[in-house]
């Protein structure tokens, strides 16, 4: 916390992130030095973040699970290779075995109707879930954040209208609204994705807006305005970085909620259709066999959803603890 120390360490650490240095509005030496000095405490904070994260066992567990999931989702063909020329997201079938087979060396997690390989579905399902969640959460965060930023910073009529619109979206239970929109758009994964995007942004708008309302009262915003910064620059360079931590936490946890909703809709028959490596649909397809005692078709895909959602919840919990100024001391 010694300011002298800060300045000393700054020149050493700043080059580590060249991206930030390039962002300086002009390349004059004075400004560059300013950026370096501004960056030093941020890097120290980041290191402290990692230190705090690594201290919490649960967030480490979340990180580990997530690393495994990302690896599987990124390189599913290393675990189980799709037949050439076939849509890799379709389960491989075998017409010769109409009845499900229990787990064996050939089929680690057993097979479903007509030899649908459950292991294949679980592995490739992670890719479907991961890309689905990233697309939905990513776009919703961008859209919701921009709207919330404008709403909170501008205030007045814009804010009032925007908040009433989010009220409407938040006053219908999300699964109900998503189901209605997905039904209107058609029974496939694409329309489920659009339906989720149409609904999910409103939560982020509310969070960011609430944050900006308190952040904009800070002296540094006044200082930025006094020094002649434009509205856009104040919003994105000053208000946004100080408002985003709660959104980051919410978005992390929502990665799980989005996948839960997607799986639920597929289970109901609206999202992915039969034969796809989608976990919710696989649970649905195995349901009838499960009731007769053939457990593997339901248990493995369901476990996959549980692990996926749990990883993001653990990480979100950890992030919240790290980013909460009350908890850091």
């Amino acid at each position: 916390m010694n300011p002298l120390k800060e300045e000393k360490s700054a020149p050493k650490k700043a080059p580590a992130t060249p991206g930030k240095g390039r962002e300086a509005p002009t390349t004059s030496g004075r400004l560059l030095g300013e950026v370096r000095r501004a960056l030093a405490p941020r890097i120290r904070e980041l290191k402290f973040d990692f230190h705090l994260m690594s201290r919490s066992l649960t967030s480490l567990a979340g990180l580990f699970l997530l690393a495994v999931l990302i690896a599987v989702a990124a390189f599913p063909w290393l675990l189980t290779e799709p037949a050439p020329g076939r849509d890799p997201y379709l389960l491989p079938f075998d017409r010769n075995t109409p009845d499900p087979l229990p787990p064996s060396a050939d089929h680690l997690f057993g097979t479903g109707k007509y030899g649908a390989d459950i292991f294949y579905g679980v592995v490739w399902g992670s890719r479907i879930s991961m890309s689905f969640a990233i697309q939905v959460v990513g776009l919703s965060v961008i859209f919701g954040t921009i709207l919330g930023l404008i709403s909170g910073y501008k205030g007045g009529l814009i804010d009032e209208v925007m908040m009433r619109v989010t009220d409407v979206f938040l006053s219908i239970p999300s699964l109900v609204l998503v189901m209605a929109i997905a039904a209107a758009l058609g029974k496939n994964l694409e329309s489920t994705k659009l339906a989720l995007m149409a609904v999910w942004w409103s939560g982020y708008t509310r969070i960011i807006r609430g944050q900006v309302l308190s952040v904009r009262e800070n002296t540094y915003i006044d200082a930025a305005r006094a020094s002649g910064s434009g509205e856009l620059k104040i919003m994105f360079r000053h208000a946004l970085p100080n408002s985003w931590p709660p959104v980051l936490v919410a978005a992390t946890m929502d990665m799980g909620s989005v996948v839960l909703t997607m799986a639920a809709l597929s289970f109901l028959g609206l999202g992915a259709q039969s034969g796809y490596s989608e976990w919710g649909k696989m649970v649905y397809d195995g349901q009838q066999y499960f009731y007769r005692g053939d457990w593997w078709m339901v248990v493995f895909p369901g476990m996959a959803i549980l692990v996926f959602v749990m990883a993001f919840n653990l990480l979100g919990d950890g992030l919240r603890d790290v980013l909460d100024p009350k908890m850091r001391r």
Binding site: F267, G280, V298, N313
Partner: peptide
């Protein structure tokens, strides 16, 4: 933690299979 992460429909199917069918 399991409660907030478990899919509702999966839990329902598990309970039904275990307590009714088995």
């Amino acid at each position: 933690l399991i409660g907030v992460s478990i899919p509702v429909f999966w839990l329902g199917v598990l309970l039904l299979a275990l307590f009714y069918y088995q």
